[in-house]
Computed example of a mutant assay.
Amino acid sequence: LYVEGLSPGEGRLFFELVRESQKPILVYKSGKTAAGAQAAASHTAAISGNYEIFRAATKQGGVILAETLEEYYDYLRIFSLLAKKKPQGNRVAGVVNAGFESTIAADELDNLVPATLHSETIQKLRQADVHGLVDLSTALLDVTPMANDQLFTDYVETVLQDENVDCVFVSIVPHSNALKSGPDTARDPGSLASLLARLAQQYQKPLVVSVNGARHYDEFVAVMEEGGLPVYRNPRAAVQALEAFVSYHLNQK
């Protein structure tokens, strides 16, 4: 929903309906500033009201409130594409191929917590780590740019299979020569995009992806989106969306 303001009497009705809803309600509210409130009143006669009060009321009512339009569209993507997937907890694992991505993602975890990987999972990951470069002391795995499509996918599937992991984020810097990420190879059945799309269909755990690349990689992104994966342009947006999705569902229990 896009909300500029509420007329007298509408506020109570709105929040009563929100509390009764069995579906996620996503809201972006404009008219937060004095200038914005004046603009809203000039063409809708809506009363914008105090934004802090609106924020507190939406939180109490279980509304997912986006603070920016970018967040609104990011949240819309994950709640629509993963509508049939319900996280069982907030334990997260990540697989990235550049170290800075895991650091950025870790800063945005908020209510997500890094999973404690099962010993069997660590053993499988150790066997897959043919280059001996992956730090297995954390659930936020940097598999380095040396990981090819299949190896990258193997890491993702291994953490998806771990009973200690509730959700997974994948962050890809697609410029690696080891990956089939260009427009001519993105739709190859063995490309990372195709393999991740298959994992999304196979597993019920929420899985989100970020692709830190320009328009050259649009086809790479399209393959995953067509497979039902929410794809973002940076790890920060991906993890924030995943956190909002997981927090909403856990609060419904």
Results as ranks from 00 to 15, higher is better:
Ser171Gly: 15
Phe100Tyr: 14
Val168Leu: 06
Gly5Lys: 07
Glu71Arg: 06
Glu67Pro: 10
Tyr28Thr: 11
Leu133Ile: 10
Val223His: 02
Val113Gly: 03
Leu199Asp: 00
His216Val: 15
Ala66Asn: 07
Pro235Ala: 10
Pro189Ser: 01
Leu160Gly: 00
Pro235Gln: 08
Ala83Val: 12
Val95Arg: 02
Leu151Arg: 15
Asp154Ile: 11
Thr138Pro: 02
Leu69Asp: 07
Asp162Phe: 01
Glu157Pro: 01
Glu108Cys: 11
Leu151Gln: 10
Val168Trp: 00
Thr44Trp: 09
His249Tyr: 13
Asn212Trp: 13
Tyr28Lys: 12
Gln150Thr: 15
Leu81Val: 01
Asp110Ser: 11
Ala98Gln: 12
Phe14Pro: 03
Ala34Leu: 13
Tyr75Phe: 15
Glu4Gln: 14
Asn251Thr: 11
Tyr155Met: 06
Asp149Thr: 09
Ser7Tyr: 14
Gln38Gly: 13
Val239Ala: 01
Gly89Met: 06
Leu207Trp: 09
Ile122Ala: 04
Lys253Asp: 09
Ile172Thr: 07
Val173Trp: 10
Phe220Gly: 05
Gln161Leu: 14
Val231Ser: 00
Ala115Gly: 06
Leu196Cys: 05
Asp184Tyr: 11
Pro206Cys: 13
Val221Trp: 00
Asp110Met: 12
Gln150Ile: 13
Gln252Met: 05
Ala41Trp: 13
His118Gly: 07
Ser80Glu: 09
Leu160Tyr: 02
Leu192Glu: 01
Phe54Gly: 04
Asn97Asp: 08
Lys59Val: 09
Ser181Gly: 14
Ala115Asn: 05
Ala106Trp: 05
Asn111Val: 12
Val130Arg: 14
Tyr2Cys: 11
Val170Gly: 01
Lys86Thr: 12
Val209Phe: 06
Ala238Glu: 08
Leu242Ile: 09
Gln88Phe: 05
Ser7Arg: 15
Tyr155Asp: 05
Leu151Pro: 06
Ile172Tyr: 00
Ser210Pro: 07
His131Ile: 10
Tyr75Met: 08
Leu136Ala: 09
Glu67Thr: 12
His118Thr: 10
Ala244Glu: 06
Leu207Ala: 08
Val211Trp: 00
Phe54Thr: 03
Ala39Asn: 09
Asn251Gly: 15
Lys84Pro: 02
Thr103Leu: 15
Gly61Met: 07
Lys29Gln: 02
Ala83Glu: 11
Thr144Ser: 10
Lys86Cys: 04
Leu136Pro: 05
Ser171Gln: 11
Val208Phe: 00
Leu199Trp: 07
Phe15Glu: 02
Gly94Asp: 01
Ser30Asp: 10
Ala178Gln: 10
Ala115Met: 07
Thr185Tyr: 03
Arg12Leu: 12
Ile64Asn: 01
Val168Gly: 00
Asp74Ala: 14
Leu26Thr: 06
